[in-house]
Design a protein around this nucleic acid. Sequence first.
RNA 1: CGAGGUGUAGCGCAGUUGGUAGCGCGCACGGUUCGGGACCGUGAGGCCGUGGGUUCGAGCCCCGCCACCUCGACCA
Length: 575
Amino acid sequence: MKISKLVGERYKETPNGAQLKSHILLLRAGYIKQVSTGIFSMLPPAQRVSQKIQSIIRDEMNKIGGQEVLFPVVMPRELWEMSGRYQSIQDELLRFKDRNGHDMLLGMTHEEAAVHMVMNTVKSHDELPCMIYQIQTKYRDEARPRGGLIRVREFLMKDAYSFHTSQEDLDAYYKKVYDAYVRIYRRIGLKNFISVKSDSGIMGGKVADEFMLVTDSGEDRLVLCDKCGYKANMEVASGRKSPNEKEEEKPLEEVFTGNAKTIDELCHYLHITPDKTVKAVCYETEDARPVIAFLRGDYEINEKKLAKLCKSEIKVADTDKFDLVAGNIGLLNLTVQEDALVFYDTSIKGLENFVTGANKADFHVKNVCADRDLEEVTFDDIALVKEGDCCPVCGEKLTLTRGIEIGNIFQLGTKYTKTMGMKVSMPDGGAMEPIMGCYGIGIGRALASIIEEKGDSKGIVWPMTVAPWQVHFCPLRLDDENVSAVADELYRKMQEAGIEVLFDDRVVSAGVKLTDSELMGVPIRVVISPKTMANGTAEVTMRETGETNFIPLQNLLSELKAIIEDEIEEINKNI
RNA sequence: CGAGGUGUAGCGCAGUUGGUAGCGCGCACGGUUCGGGACCGUGAGGCCGUGGGUUCGAGCCCCGCCACCUCGACCA
């Protein structure tokens, strides 16, 4: 490819609005162009990377027996009514009418289509297990797209669906997919990724894992133990709190605290620290029952866990609504309506001489002792893990970090086969609804994640396995006839040798060519100029390390091929 | 959906008390340069997001709408 003909341009300045490294670099280097919020076009270099990622994914899916298929983007309402999701999914599912007024939708995931494809097609246990997958556009009407390709509305995704006649069979296959995913991420050049147990949601089956790229720029919060390997999404993570110190119990005392309502204000007013206070948070359930949760002042509530205990979706409630005194809610003498749900976090257990609201305006109670003053209370784990908490498995200090979700695998169970009525006949003459697994990887997000992990201050750094081109050929002084002639010949030879080469054929200054090549991130840069030609060499620089060698021109092709092979081998050696 | 913000040339931005628009980069042409975003000259490119209003006159003031950005809520 000649860069003079390459569609797209490169920018010096950070585009307005882009914050995330991958977003900035993809825009600056001419890989993507935004069409609308969360909707992007992929320019030629991005499309080339995308296709390489896809072919690695295809290879691994085929290796575990996957059969590639293609589901439609547009589906009729009826198909999604069979699973109940036409109703249960809200605004994220984009609905519209066709010319006949028929209700249609844009696929955001394809469980229904997958079951539709195999039901009455795969009829016998003999044909299971089977796995079908596709690489195709999804549309999710995200409330808030962000971060360039990290969170978008329209995106390319590999999604796979497997069908099994027993849980054991699914378990075994699930493990195979897990291993394939690890190989995929390694092959596209990622290093700093992990899997975490995740919340399968109210709808899903029992087992779910998320693959995460560990990075500060991620939007998911992760809890890790460096010692025993405990890994969890913040939503499901538990932390062992440091035990509350034993103190001499002091008598209860009601104190005037005036306008001190928040934990900060209270601590400032009474000269205490948040870990010697207990606060209340107030929610309501779907059927409007009040939910009050108490936790130590230095902890925050884990709404997902609280919702699970309530067996209902919950939303933050106005304290007035339930006749509670905002800012002065406390553990003692709390009067609530009969159907109220009250929970106590484990951080309160054994806590002594703490301050809590007096359940009347302007007053708090001092010297409350959990063991002495609370009666028949059970403690639940409802606080978010915080810095300093310890591993629930081994007790070591936990590490809090962030991650980008780059893939997930789910055991779906029979939710879809049951609701849609798919059965296969069994050896005993009966029939059963197959047990399903589903497995997804977002292509664009994977592409952006590679940049998040490897990009540097100069630009993108592509691993050889996914690079849009293997060699960025930058002849300097193309106005010089000798350079121009040799450049044309080398370009032709590289192409003939099967090297994927981007040829900077512009007559521009060295700085322009070199900075562009660094920005675009092609792994090997080859420079020739009157200087190098004087001693018959080409300058070969590795983008990632900056390492430079001068290679005699007659060896250039074989050297380049060797470097390319070495790089690919290095990436693939651990898979 | 809640809060805040921004819309002026391909990109990044300026535009004073209201008087019909500029700068840098990029682009085109000519010339001088040439291994780290060179320089000189010439030129093209704008319905100032959009609809209304105020005014002799609106990029600027007022109202509506739209688009986009950030934080939050949401996220099979």
